[in-house]
């Protein structure tokens, strides 16, 4: 295997992983942008989507409709979480809201354990998605699910871009993210905007959850936890609350992780997550606004 082929293979891996991180981070950033809420429950909304998809496939539904139902289930879960848990504490201090989202996480995860036990289940991926492409004599390989992940990320993000720049409610979301009070003063229906933001973000979580589980090959109640933490890092690197920032952060994080695994010595590789979270802390300290909002002030 030549050096070049090795590098191309790693670029493919980085784009595939980065797409997943970007999808999760975009959802987190939408919620944070509008509500200034660090939504820990986002990972569990992913889990809802993934489990729904798996159960429907097991019941005989083809992959694509099952995935769409999974995304819908996540969107409904997000809607319910906002109505039941987050709306009553919308104006409470940061910490109260953060704690509430932790409690929602705790409930959903344990509900998952109660219903499905904590042992992992296989993700029944159709053969066509599992088949792999072999280029230059097997030195470069990737599967159709990798292709699907990258394609869906691009398509869904183009859709999101259209939504937030061309529709009234999307523009309202951006206005609310900019300045909630001013948006309210000019007659924006805040409840509607927040609900839409939550549903959109949760649908993204659902899509990310299905793709994540499909790539991992398994689903389990705690599956949302790792992607959530990674997406926090991605969103903060890019600029928390900014959608393009989340996208940039997601791909950068994917590239960094693959770089550590592929090119650094074996003694360093197990510390990958420690390096990633040290980077998170460094960003919070020195550039809390992330790459795209360098002038945001540090709040003492």
């Amino acid at each position: 295997m030549s050096q070049l082929e090795y590098i191309i293979q790693q670029v493919i891996n980085a784009v595939s992983l980065g797409s997943l991180y970007a999808l999760v981070a975009v959802g987190l950033s939408i919620v944070f942008g509008v509500l200034k809420l660090t939504n820990f429950a986002h990972g569990d909304v992913m889990m809802v989507g993934a489990f729904t998809t798996v159960l429907l496939i097991a019941a005989g539904m083809p992959f694509i409709p099952a995935m769409i139902c999974g995304i819908a289930a996540s969107a409904i879960a997000g809607f319910l979480i906002e109505r039941i848990a987050y709306r009553p504490i919308r104006n409470a201090p940061d910490v109260t809201r953060l704690l509430t989202s932790l409690a929602v996480t705790y409930i959903l995860e344990n509900l998952g354990i109660l219903l499905f036990t904590s042992s992992p289940r296989n993700f029944p991926l159709p053969d066509i998605l599992n088949s792999s492409w072999q280029l230059s004599g097997g030195a470069i390989t990737f599967t159709n699910i990798n292709v699907l992940t990258v394609a869906l990320t691009f398509v869904s993000l183009i859709g999101l871009g259209w939504f937030i720049t061309r529709t009234t409610i999307g523009l309202g979301m951006r206005a609310a993210a900019e300045d909630m009070q001013a948006a309210q003063l000019v007659g924006l229906d805040v409840n509607k905007v927040i609900i839409v933001a939550f549903v959109v973000a949760s649908a993204y979580a659902g899509l990310a959850g299905v793709l994540w589980a499909a790539q991992a090959g398994v689903v389990q109640p705690q599956m949302g936890f790792t992607p959530l933490l990674k997406a926090f890092v991605a969103a903060i690197i890019g600029g928390f609350g900014s959608i393009s920032g989340a996208l940039l952060g997601g791909y950068m994080l994917g590239a960094l992780e693959i770089f550590i695994v592929a090119f650094l010595p074996d003694t360093v590789v197990p510390y990958r997550d420690a390096i990633v979270f040290a980077l998170l802390i460094a960003f919070l300290l020195f550039r809390p606004g992330g790459l795209l909002q360098p002038n945001r002030e540090i709040k003492l």
């Binding site: 660090t38 940061d94 910490v95 953060l98 933490l229 926090f232 890092v233 903060i236 979270f277 040290a278 998170l280 802390i281 919070l284 300290l285 809390p288 540090i298 709040k299 003492l300």
Partner: peptide
């Protein structure tokens, strides 16, 4: 030096 959710997320990183 950090406050609010910044310090929560950073200490979670720790």
């Amino acid at each position: 030096r950090l406050s609010g959710y910044f310090v929560s997320v950073a200490t979670m990183g720790f």
